[in-house]
Write a protein that binds this DNA or RNA. Structure first.
Lengths: 241, 241
DNA sequence: TTACGTCTGTACGATGCCGCACTTAGACGC
DNA sequence: GCGTCTAAGTGCGGCATCGTACAGACGTAA
């Protein structure tokens, strides 16, 4: 188990210099994140921040009439629970495990203390938060202007970026909930992508066959966000100085 | 002039205790913000942060094909240029003056220094940033699920919240650009609101006649964001401790 | 007053997505 | 092997918004 899982699989933890990492290490708790688990509800007080390693988390907004929309995803590139150090403690969003896996969690007050030292951890977390802001903003634009098919491409690419392999465990129904569209719309879009040889799927298993073509078919929103993540969080130790 | 304009017309500046306020005061520069002025372009390095007092700023994302969408508005409750202290220095969005007025600006390095003191100013700015995140997220949901008419109501209410009077200087064409919809869609929605006696308008002048009814017709998105702003930024000195 | 530009109203077919209903096809347990 | 459940495919009418085009109304400046 301890060979398979390591905190540095999370890019933010990996970007820390040893002083900060060593301080945080004893506080890290490995947790399994089963598909569908709700890590926090809208308005709920957060007790932990989560550093995903092999799982993916969806940030969902749910409307009064029950429909929903994913506004951002968090995987091993990020951290869940920014409102803890931003000072709000809660957010109006719901966090759901979108892809089964593992992650590390840290008690809220621990990360707050570290943040309040106003050192490299603060700078790193804020830069990540800005990248997250970009993702949310671009999602707003994408919801307005782009087709279900383009958004499905975006969603597939975002997911694969946060996974090791090329297979996703995810039904069309769940994807529809994430994107905030009908299940049939996803079926139709997925059918086109399948026909074009970009993906393969069956009963909740999706295989990405031709990523380059997917990247050509996706709307700009995917690339804009990716570029911004790369700019704000160049991998490894570069950020923390 | 100096009677008409005062930094404390901006709620964030007003929330500062005297020590921080006095430090910042000599650095504040009053600037006029004419309608349509672009305060920064997507990807541009920001030289100042802006504290609006009587103007309103729109944060717009522009797509490759030229269509756009407003993802947040900033008025006297906020600050423009969070990417400066978040550490990114640039964002993929464009900031445009949506309503003529005034504001104060501060050079980027000044606000960075203040932020890096890790005192009340940092805490205040981060709380504001979290409120902004909520606004962006809710905009994403609204773009997905709600009608043009509901979004127009939201837009009108957001604008009036940031102004003193009940009249907006804004054509339907410009509103359409903000919302990322057709001008005709706005005409139709505005026609309904006019017919119902909620607003009056003519050639770029919009009067809000019945705000309570507007609030009943708007989608939840407006209220969710308002509640979150009020929670995170309870007025005046309460926040900065 | 006239001419021009801007703002607003209206019409119409096209399109993409919705809501609903029903079918088909794998997966799984007994 | 059989029923059952869940995932995915299909069909159809309805609706909101789009794209385009044009007409009227108002304001301003010559």
């Amino acid at each position: 188990m301890s060979d398979l899982h390591h905190p540095r699989q999370n890019h933010l933890l990996d970007a820390l210099l040893s002083a900060e990492y060593d301080r945080l290490f004893p506080e890290l708790e490995l947790v399994h994140m089963p598909l569908g688990k709700v890590l926090y509800e809208s308005g709920e007080h957060l007790k932990h921040v989560y550093f995903p390693t092999t799982c993916i988390i969806s940030l969902l907004y749910v409307t009064e009439n029950g429909s929903s929309a994913e506004i951002a995803v968090v995987g091993n590139e990020g951290i869940l629970g920014v409102s803890i150090f931003m000072g709000g403690d809660t957010t109006p969003s719901r966090a759901v495990v979108q892809s089964d896996g593992y992650g590390y969690r840290v008690k809220a007050h621990i990360i707050k203390n570290e943040f309040n030292l106003a050192g490299p951890v603060l700078r790193l977390l804020l830069r990540y938060t800005q990248a997250l802001i970009t993702q949310m903003s671009q999602t707003a634009v994408c919801n307005r202007h782009h087709s279900v098919e383009q958004q499905l491409c975006r969603w597939l690419l975002l997911s694969q970026d946060r996974l090791s392999g090329n297979e996703l465990i995810m039904t069309q129904e769940l994807i529809a909930n994430m994107l905030g569209v009908r299940r049939e719309g996803v079926t139709e879009a997925a059918g086109k992508l399948h026909h074009a040889g970009l993906i393969d799927y069956s009963r909740g298993h999706i295989k990405i066959l031709d990523r380059p073509k997917l990247e050509r078919r996706v709307c700009e929103c995917y690339h804009v966000v990716k570029v911004e993540y790369d700019r704000l969080l160049p991998s490894l130790h570069a950020i923390a100085r």
